[in-house]
Amino acid sequence: MTNVSAMAPAVEKIDAPATQSARLGLWLTLPAQLLVLFIALFPILMQVYISLTDWSPLDGIPWWKAHELWIGLLNYADLMADNRFWGALWRTMFVMAICVPVQFLLGLGLAVLFVDDFRGKRVLYSTLLVPMMVVPAVAGYMFFMLFQSGGPVNDLLSFFTSDPVRIAWLSDPDLALIAVMIADIWQWTPLMFLILLAGMISVPQDQQMAAILLGASWWRRFFTIVLPRMKSIIIIALAIRVIEIFKIFDTLFIMTGGGPGVATETISVYIYKVTQQELIWSYVAAIALAILIVLSVVSVFAIKRMQRGQKP
């Protein structure tokens, strides 16, 4: 977690006592370093230790004596055979596979509509950003209300049918997952839009003019100039959403609590339930470590892209 950075530090040249500056620099970074150590290095070591035991806060054994319950890699073996874990992982991936492309396409489409000036642009832009600023737990509650069987979504749908629609969105396994995905798309399309629009605006105007003068149609320009030039920004936007959906918890947990059954149980919800309801903390530590290792590999790729994106 504390990899040596590839970033070239900007070297201080001006003042003569360079060592004094360097020392001040160290002092300035110290609090952040300590906080990172506090949350990263030490906890991870602790997590490794606990994951190799059968410790639970209910046992009455302090955690540093957890080695009395040493079970080696048994937790990891259990994990391999844990259908509920794999189901949650698969479900998380499924939500990701649906939501990220939908959010991307909607966000890109909106960005196209917003890239040149029109009346009311500023107000509409600000309004579109509102969903992403709603507290996710509150958003969860909003959608919980909207999707009640006597709620406004069904009321709207009834408008198109002769009989009043009484779909029990949140208690049907399939529909509950759809409702959760709708909530995520509602809340996070604006983020995609925000980033993609910023990227689209940064595509140089003269490049587009040049393409127009060479006779390129709008579509050709979009696919040969605009999109290729937005490549690193698109990757960043997608990466952010993939990471966030991997963590998805608040909205979903309030809407469905992971239910009905395990129908909307994602990784975070699953870990939460094992932590709070079943209290098998050593097993949770094992799951968490497995996830951290996988994410570290993914993140190295993402970070490299981000750093490349920083250089214009």
Partner: peptide, 17 residues
């Protein structure tokens, strides 16, 4: 500290992770 003195070079990555 990082922007001016180049100290704490490992922080950016650690923080992103």
């Amino acid at each position: 500290g990082l922007s001016r003195f180049g100290q704490g070079g490992n922080l950016p990555l650690a923080l992103i992770q």
